[in-house]
């Protein structure tokens, strides 16, 4: 028999590192942000599927994804989970929600890009919530997205950056006036999902957030989002138009996504109105 002593010692080293990392991991705060979209989505899906069942759930895109659960601390809306998925259609978030035996009391549905069709990225995320990988991650804590060493480090760096203000940019002029859609396609899948949620006792509220360069040219005029909201007939919290009245302007980290401080203010405003 040829030697396998190195192989055994390699396994032992890996096991020791896993043990050490498990201990270190417990001492560190769980990251709220991840370095890639895929990891961020995995993290949100894992928390939604495996964490305590939330009373309130945010479903949307990467825009609403900036409303971190920690921003809601002390707002009276603590038991909130954010299932906004980067680069995905909000319909995917709704489908994941409907896949659970019990749905939350309140779903805050982000209006941005609601008409986006379900694409390959969405299928990958849905598969992620069901496949063998998912089962492995639910059984072995160390393989979860929020245990990735690079994600933990990124989360730690970002939390320090947030405390120091971080990098912000003013929103440029709209590059996507009024969403540029001439007619709003009726998202049948979305309507079905909303009706099913309501039938299961969940209240669905639309939220509209500022989206930087994709904000409408004329803030007062009617646009695609308004048409869609009207079409769905859901109660709406329009944080975009409300924020236009605020003394401190909304800031963005990349011209599109909310900067931490603005996201925090919007989260507080959202919590106040959602409680009502």
């Amino acid at each position: 028999m040829q030697s396998a002593s190195q192989s055994l010692r390699i396994l032992i080293v890996a096991a020791v590192l896993c043990g050490l990392w498990s201990v270190v991991r417990i001492q560190l705060p769980k990251p709220e942000l991840a370095e890639t979209n895929y990891t961020a989505n995995r993290m949100r899906i894992e928390r939604f599927l495996e964490g305590p069942k939330p009373k309130c759930l945010i479903v949307g895109t990467s825009i609403a994804g900036r409303l971190l659960p920690s921003y809601f601390k002390g707002s009276g809306l603590e038991n909130i989970v954010n299932l906004s998925l980067d680069g995905a259609s909000p319909i995917t978030g709704l489908q994941l929600t409907l896949g659970q035996p019990k749905t939350p009391d309140l779903v805050l549905l982000e209006a941005h890009r609601l008409w986006n069709p379900v694409r390959a990225n969405d299928h990958q995320l849905l598969a992620l919530s069901q496949g063998m990988d998912r089962r492995l991650h639910s059984e072995v804590t160390l393989t979860k997205a929020d245990s990735r060493p690079t994600t933990v480090l990124y989360g730690w760096l970002k939390s320090h950056q947030h405390q120091e203000g971080g990098q912000v940019t003013e929103a440029k002029g709209p590059v996507n006036p009024s969403g540029v859609l001439k007619t709003v396609p009726r998202p049948e899948e979305l309507i079905r999902a909303v009706h099913e949620l309501e039938a299961r006792g969940t209240k669905v509220v639309m939220i509209r957030l500022p989206v930087g360069r994709e904000n409408p040219v004329d803030p007062k005029g009617q646009d695609d989002v308004d048409l869609l909201v009207k079409d769905l007939g859901l109660p709406t919290i329009d944080l975009y138009r409300q924020s236009l009245e605020w003394a401190e302007p909304i800031r963005y980290s990349d011209g599109l996504h909310l900067a931490p401080e603005s996201a925090r203010r919007l989260a507080c405003a959202l919590a106040l109105q959602a409680k009502r």
Binding site: Q6, I10, V13, A14, C18, Q124, D133, L142
Partner: peptide, 22 residues
């Protein structure tokens, strides 16, 4: 031998914890 074992053990640890999307 020691360096090899530690390096490969660390890589195995990262495969388990830090893989990207398949």
């Amino acid at each position: 031998d020691r360096v090899t074992v530690v390096l490969h053990g660390s890589m195995l640890f990262l495969i388990l914890t830090n893989s990207g999307p398949p």
